[in-house]
Amino acid sequence: MNIFRFAGDMTHLMSILILLLKIYATKSCAVGISLKTQELYALVFLTRYLDQFTDYVSLYNSVMKVVFIASSLAIVWCMRRHPLVRKSYDKDLDTFRHQYVLLACFVLALLLHEIFTFQEVFWAFSIYLEAVAILPQLVLLQRSGNVDNLTGQYVLFLGAYRGLYIINWIYRYFTEDHFTRWIACVSGLVQTALYADFFYYYYLSWKTNTKLKLPA
């Protein structure tokens, strides 16, 4: 465990807590949040942590896996079932066809994986899926034009978590002899690149002190 990875996990946790805060603090409204992105994230955690009960790595690892699975399912449940939240969710705006993304990631996982076993194929699937899971959210933000600051911070923390993970991989590459995780590294780079344009507009809006506008 190194500080970059720990900081990455904490900012990832923060992004999820910001979302939960947004849903409850704004009187349980889910405006500007993409349910599809939240469902994809829940699937990422469920398919990645299949080894939760078979491979014990550390207490920290096990606890964080439970927290990520529970919190992501809580957000999906809340946006689907909670009487107030589901009313504020704008499904006409959240129309990204995420089925294609699911299919593409699964086919890619069948082709590109470390070992052809059930767990490894689903682990690779979860890595690819995480890279593109933010797309429905970014499309929704572009559609709705304005980004309220909690949602903006949510995406910002998610990007920070990925950025810190890339530094963690660079650090591990130089400090550990046999550290190679090509699938996670390449996929993580793609994911961080997806955030880059959002960061650019976020920085512009912060610098010019105007409301964050994403080009439609």
């Binding site: 990875r5 996990d9 080894d51 491979d55 014990y56 690892n61 996670a184």
Partner: peptide, 10 residues
């Protein structure tokens, strides 16, 4: 085993 070592990240 090998799997443990490689999959120590979240």
């Amino acid at each position: 085993g090998r799997r443990n070592v490689m999959k120590d990240e979240l």
